[in-house]
Amino acid sequence: MRPDVRRWLRSRTFTAETWQAADLVTAKGTRGSTVSVVLPALDEERTVGAIVETIRRDLVEACPLVDEIVVVDSGSSDRTAEVAAAAGARVVSVDDVLPRHGSRPGKGEALWKSLHATTGELIVFVDSDLVDFDPRFVVGLLGPLLTDPTIGYVKALYDRPLTTTDGIVPSGGGRVTELVARPLLNAFWPELAGFVQPLSGEYAGRRELLEQVPFVSGYGVELGLLVDLVALAGLDALAQVDLGTRKHTHQADAALGRMAGQILQTALARWPGGGRPESELLQFLRTADGLESVTWDVGVVERPPMRAVRAADRRRGTWA
């Protein structure tokens, strides 16, 4: 293990139990901080309501750690928006945020636009497909940011149980992480090798940093943020927190392959000399008539840093 990674693991890896919500409220008041929780959502009516309700009950009403809960709906066809609003979130449609800039498909677009739709100095991102959500996820991610001003971005780490035909594999989730993201980081950005869950959908950061980096529109957003933020702020500005166990829905292997393709595109775009990689992914299905090929476009679109967008629009007088 590289000495810098070993040192970083010792000094920048925490556990959620280190902090209690009430103590962080005091730290938040001392620093004059504000906190926004963002849930990007697409057809998550089954889970989003329980997550919002838990955050509102435990971290807004019982203990005022969170100032706003915003669900960014990416065009759901189910009752995601209605369920989230009924649970206490402010729901915004991705198409209604910065409409002059249009909309792109993908989770990263919702995260990028959430920077404009929220007001908090600290922003916590939480995936909306979590099952048995625990409010300590938010508490744990905010802990380093509210107690150490040198830390600007915090990733979650956790076990991800995978349900199979043979039962539950306690840590079998995260197949794209182990097969794609971790080898890429170790090969090209070895200083980031200490991140246990580099693709985790739960993380928090200071607006000041998040608005200085681009956001990839698709599934490469998490890897892109890691690479860009370490280049911007340095390794010691990044940290990770052990949240225990994360339960969520799992996708089929073919869908994971498309996710992996977008992650690879994101990585190659950031590697000097990487050029413009082929964006088509060819997959195969076995049908009654034999093998059928399916072609997917896994190219990604990058949104520029929000700070640059805001400055350009203000010069034009179009910021809204």
Rank of each mutant, 00 (worst) to 15 (best):
M1P: 12
R2I: 08
V5M: 08
R6T: 14
R7S: 11
R7C: 04
L9F: 02
R10L: 12
R10K: 10
R10W: 12
F14L: 11
T15N: 15
A22R: 13
V25T: 10
T26H: 11
K28M: 07
G32Q: 01
S33Q: 02
V35F: 05
S36T: 04
V37N: 10
L42P: 09
D43L: 07
R46Q: 13
V48I: 15
I51K: 07
I51E: 10
E53G: 15
I55T: 11
I69S: 06
V71K: 11
V72C: 10
G75H: 07
G75D: 07
A81C: 06
E82P: 02
E82W: 04
A84Q: 12
A84R: 09
G88Q: 10
S93T: 11
S93E: 14
V94S: 12
R100Y: 02
R100A: 10
H101R: 09
R104H: 05
P105M: 09
L115D: 00
L122M: 03
V124Y: 10
D129H: 07
L130A: 14
V131N: 11
D132A: 14
D134P: 09
D134K: 08
F137V: 14
V138W: 15
V138K: 07
L141C: 09
L142P: 08
P144I: 06
L146E: 06
L146F: 05
T150Q: 02
V154S: 08
A156Y: 08
Y158V: 08
P161L: 09
T163K: 09
T165K: 11
I168M: 13
G174N: 10
R175K: 15
V176Y: 05
V176S: 10
L179S: 14
R182S: 12
R182C: 09
R182E: 13
L184F: 08
L184S: 09
N186F: 01
A187K: 11
P190Y: 03
E191V: 02
G194I: 13
Q197T: 15
L199V: 11
A204G: 01
G205M: 00
G205E: 02
R206K: 00
R206C: 01
V213F: 01
L225D: 02
L225M: 06
L226Y: 02
V227A: 01
V230Q: 04
V230L: 06
A231Q: 05
A233M: 00
L235M: 02
L235A: 07
A237H: 03
A239K: 04
A239C: 07
D242M: 11
G244C: 11
T245D: 04
R246H: 15
A254W: 14
A255W: 08
G257Q: 13
G261P: 13
G261V: 14
I263H: 04
I263S: 08
A269M: 11
W271I: 15
S279D: 05
L285P: 05
A288M: 13
D289H: 13
L291S: 07
D297P: 00
V298H: 08
G299E: 01
V301K: 01
R303P: 02
P304E: 03
R307C: 00
R307N: 00
R310D: 03
A312W: 03
R314S: 06
R314Y: 00
R315M: 01
T318I: 02
T318G: 02
